[in-house]
Nucleic acid binder design. Structure first.
Length: 585
RNA sequence: GCGCCCGUAGCUCAGCUGGAUAGAGCAUCGGCCUUCUAAGCCGAAUGUCGCAGGUUCGAAUCCUGCCGGGCGCGCCA
């Protein structure tokens, strides 16, 4: 249960009552009413702006209306007190008993705590990575991969029916380059001296096994043929090989897509023709001449009529070409077809995760989606900014085994999957991210991966101590649900429960905003609150979780400890990070 | 020239879709190891939220215009 949305329902029903008894006019619109945690915990547990939002249209003074509403809210069971403050905030304080009982709910839910039916099973398509199938993934791809994957898990947790999708750009000229590069490696495997890899082809040694495999399978059958004869076969074979490579790379991060959509297959199935018909019928295509691009004018710019899509009717800056001069479709044309295809497969919420260098493309695709779906579908493009690899503050000098970039695999070998997954979420996607290979291995408070893992490990450590102190007691989840939770009376214990109770709200808010990084920040805050409680008992031994002569208070506190563990585990599981039970050198 | 993103403490960044006295970490200064991990905890200090207008009961948040930084602009993908 999300405490805040639960109380919003209560506030709304009390507003209804005020309409019924004539305090508020009929037709009062509660859309802007919200129930939030107050900024300052001393104000209470929940705050609502209802009176401030509703007073003006009703011709009332905010504080008067707040008093009327407060009076009604005081009658609620779990409400301890209600205050009206400032310009008309209504602050609610809930009873200790309410929070103590909430712990049971967390223990029962376990790792599933925070799941929500907000999405009501609505389908969402999250497309991420979609790197060109021309080589291994690099560090930049890793960020998009994690952001997309965790966003997908987050949406699933919030009750959406999520499809994780990878768009394979296997129709452009870059895959012809790939095929030619592979052909060279094929000849090399047959014993030809290929010398230096020519400019314009892919030099990476990851194509060596591809050439070798083709030589083993087909022998010299392609060796003396013209390019036109071998190109299609080499293209198909090497794209498949690259996709295997990419899937392996993603597997290192434990990322798996549900759908791999091939651009080539889409084009061959007539997807682009279909989308052109749709646009043609809607009168959104015309032959015209575009202004030359501003800034640096390309060397080979020539003004000529083109087939254009009226993107500017849908919020784009200019209309966009659909055909190249050789008559083939532009990338944009097949991308339109692809997004229409997603819509036709039943998705009206589309999320694309791209690198920031594609930023100039967002409006264009947005315009296309609007035009093709009559505004029925929404697309949200998450742009991921650069990842800067550092070593102790200096630009990293990692080995670069495959071409001139650091691969995802190099990074995973250096720091591991869990560190990559966590660190990639320690910034919002549209801010650049510094990834410090030294810092992420430090065991200190300014390394969030460690700090959160340490919190989880420490709950296990406490449980071991409790078991040692009371060998006959049962501190299992089920037994703890029946613990006497009224023994949890310390203000910091109750504050910790309140923070745990904010987890479902965090999940829903992050899912709504498509912002997976919020999970990492919440977990860090939770780890800090937990560390505080652990440290506090050092000064006040009576507050220890394990109290040697009092099994009942120990049991109550173990319920709190296991609830902390459940929420940390819940969060890490959405992030795809494996929680550790122990953390020692 | 145009578009997108960013600008918050000395540094790196959060800020819950417009709420109350703007928060963390690092760095600085000070305190805490006879028992649940000192790999840690606590306290102190630190701000014209880039600037100027506007909308609002209320703006770091929304709008407009500037300033500064990043990314991008083409029949590439």
């Amino acid at each position: 249960m999300n405490v805040f949305s639960a109380f919003k329902v209560i506030v709304e029903s009390e507003i209804e009552s005020l309409v019924t008894d004539g305090t508020l006019p009929v037709g009062t619109d509660g859309a802007r009413v919200s129930v939030d945690p107050p900024r300052d915990a001393s104000h209470g547990d929940l705050a609502t702006n209802a009176a401030m939002v509703l007073a003006k249209p009703a011709g009332l003074k905010p504080r008067d209306l707040a008093e009327s509403l407060a009076e009604r809210l005081r009658a609620q069971d779990s409400v301890e007190s209600v205050d009206v403050a400032g310009p008309g905030f209504i602050n609610l304080r809930l009873s200790d008993e309410f929070w103590q009982k909430l712990l049971v709910e967390i223990l029962v839910a376990g790792e599933a705590y925070g799941e929500s039916d907000m999405g009501q099973g609505r389908p969402v398509n999250v497309e991420y990575v979609s790197a060109n199938p021309t080589g291994p993934l690099h560090v930049g791809h890793a960020r998009g991969a994690v952001v997309g994957d965790v966003l997908a898990s987050l949406l699933a947790k919030a009750g959406f029916a999520v499809t994780r999708e990878y768009y394979i750009n296997d129709a452009g000229s870059q895959v012809d380059v790939l095929a030619r590069s592979a052909y060279l490696r094929y000849r090399e495997a047959l014993g030809d001296d290929i010398g230096e890899i020519p400019e314009g082809l892919y030099p990476g040694d990851y194509l060596v096994p591809v050439g070798k495999a083709l030589a083993e399978r087909d022998g010299s059958k392609w060796q003396d043929l013209d390019e036109a004869e071998w190109l299609p076969e080499f293209r198909a074979f090497s794209v498949a090989a690259m996709m295997d490579l990419i899937r392996d790379d993603l597997g290192v991060l434990n990322i798996r897509h549900d759908e791999f959509s091939s651009e080539r297959a889409l084009v061959e199935a007539g997807g682009v023709d279909a989308v052109m018909q749709t646009l043609e019928a809607a009168g959104l295509i015309y032959e015209g001449v575009l202004e030359p691009p501003k800034g640096k004018l390309p060397d080979d710019w020539e003004e000529r009529p083109q087939t254009l899509f009226r993107a500017s009717d849908f919020g784009d800056d200019t209309d966009r070409p659909l055909k190249k001069s050789d008559g083939s479709w532009t990338y944009f044309a097949s991308d339109l077809a692809y997004h229409q295809d997603k819509y036709r497969r039943g998705f009206s919420t589309l999320i694309d995760v791209w690198g920031a260098d594609h930023g100039g493309y967002v409006k264009r695709v947005g315009a296309g989606v609007k035009a093709l779906t009559g505004g029925e579908a929404e697309i949200d493009v998450k742009l991921c900014q650069m990842v800067r690899l550092l070593e102790d503050g200096e630009p990293a000098k990692m080995s670069k085994r495959s071409g001139n970039f650091v691969t995802l695999r190099d990074l995973a070998d250096a720091v591991g999957k869990d560190v990559i997954r966590f660190i990639m979420l320690t910034r919002k996607n549209d801010a650049p991210l510094d990834f410090d290979l030294v810092k992420v291995r430090e065991q200190s408070r300014d390394n969030p991966v460690f700090y959160v893992q340490y919190a989880h490990a420490r709950t296990h450590s406490v449980a071991r101590m409790a078991a040692e102190a009371f060998p006959d007691a049962d501190f299992g989840i089920e037994a703890l649900q029946n613990a006497d939770l009224t023994r949890l009376t310390d203000s910091d214990e109750l504050a910790l429960i309140r923070l745990l109770a904010a987890w479902p709200r965090t999940v829903e808010g992050a899912a709504e905003a498509h912002e997976p990084h919020r999970l990492a920040f919440y977990l860090y805050d939770l780890a800090a609150a937990w560390a505080w409680i652990c440290g506090k008992a050092r000064g006040e031994p009576g507050l220890r979780f394990v109290v040697a002569d009092d099994v009942d208070v120990t049991r109550a506190r173990m319920a709190l400890v296991l609830a902390v563990r459940a929420v940390v585990a819940s969060g890490l599981s959405v992030m795809g990070v494996t929680p550790v039970d122990e953390l020692r050198e």
